[in-house]
């Protein structure tokens, strides 16, 4: 089937999509957007997190056809040209990236948190990131990065 939706502001159309295919597969394999990672395909790891109509979801659990006509924003759509999003910058500065496999999902999920909650408490950060697994960092640096990004965002407001 043909599937058409907006990705990072651009309308994209792809053909010959299998009806059972996930949004994640379409993004990575058909639209050349490999930022969202495929690790578990069962909603457990969060590395495929993207915005669907402004809400973070696991792209592996959305049928491609369900995205028809909708707006998708992936990790590739967060930076403004060469300027990284503050969440991305904070991840780099805090050493929150080791192998980097979990990073795209965490960045999108953290981006949503600090959009919604002005100064998230540690409990709120942990809760928001509970569906994103990282096998490298032990999470402490990730928490540092989210705190830093949130503080900068609050200072900008």
């Amino acid at each position: 089937m043909r599937v058409s939706f907006t990705v990072n502001g651009r309308r994209e159309t792809v053909d010959d999509v299998w009806e059972g295919e996930s949004l994640l597969y379409v993004l990575r394999e058909r639209m050349g957007l490999p930022g969202s990672k495929n690790a578990c395909e069962q909603g457990e790891c969060g590395s495929c997190t993207v915005y669907l109509d402004g809400t973070p979801v696991c792209a592996c659990l959305v049928a491609a056809g369900q995205a028809e006509g909708r707006e998708v924003r992936t990790v590739e759509g967060l930076a403004d040209g060469d300027r990284l999003d503050p969440v991305q910058e904070a991840f780099v500065e805090c050493g929150a990236v080791q192998c980097g496999f979990c990073t795209p999902g965490l960045v999108v999920q953290a981006h949503d948190l600090i959009e919604r909650v002005e100064q998230p408490s540690d409990a709120e950060i942990r809760e928001a990131l509970a569906g994103n697994l990282c096998r490298c960092t032990g999470y402490e640096k990730i928490l540092d990065a989210v705190r830093l990004a949130a503080a900068r965002k609050a200072a900008d407001r």
Partner: peptide
């Protein structure tokens, strides 16, 4: 239930 991403869907 699950995680925020799961509760969103």
């Amino acid at each position: 239930v699950g995680s925020p991403q799961i509760r969103n869907r």
